[in-house]
């Protein structure tokens, strides 16, 4: 199975209770939206925080990304709130 590293930052890191994990991608998951759906299916805080319409941003291999970006073995995916630097 393809493996991806998933990172969580800021408020999401706190609410979800972890900063990173390795996830084995089932054959049905090939893009960012699919991975998000896989996480939402965990229920609880995952479902609440990552549900469609929630203010969540994502990056694939350290570049901002949206829903249909393909993900593959070895990729680094991150989920985080809209940024507030500067």
């Amino acid at each position: 199975m393809p493996m991806v590293t998933v990172l969580y930052f800021a408020r999401l890191r706190e609410v979800l209770g972890k900063s990173s994990e390795s996830i084995a991608l089932p054959a049905s998951v090939r893009d960012l939206e699919g991975l998000r759906a896989l996480l939402i299916a965990r229920g609880g805080a995952w479902e609440q925080e990552l549900a469609p319409g929630r203010p969540v941003r994502a990056a694939v291999n350290q570049a901002m990304a949206v829903g249909d970006v393909q993900i593959a073995d070895g990729d680094e995916v991150a989920f985080f709130p809209p940024v507030t630097g500067g």
């Binding site: 203010p55 940024v83 507030t84």
Partner: peptide, 26 residues
Amino acid sequence: IMDYLKTRAPFWKKEQSGEGSRWVEA
């Protein structure tokens, strides 16, 4: 550069006050 940094660079602020702390919203 500053305007784009505010919306594209992955930083997050958590503020502390007398009532506790909170993540700043975009």
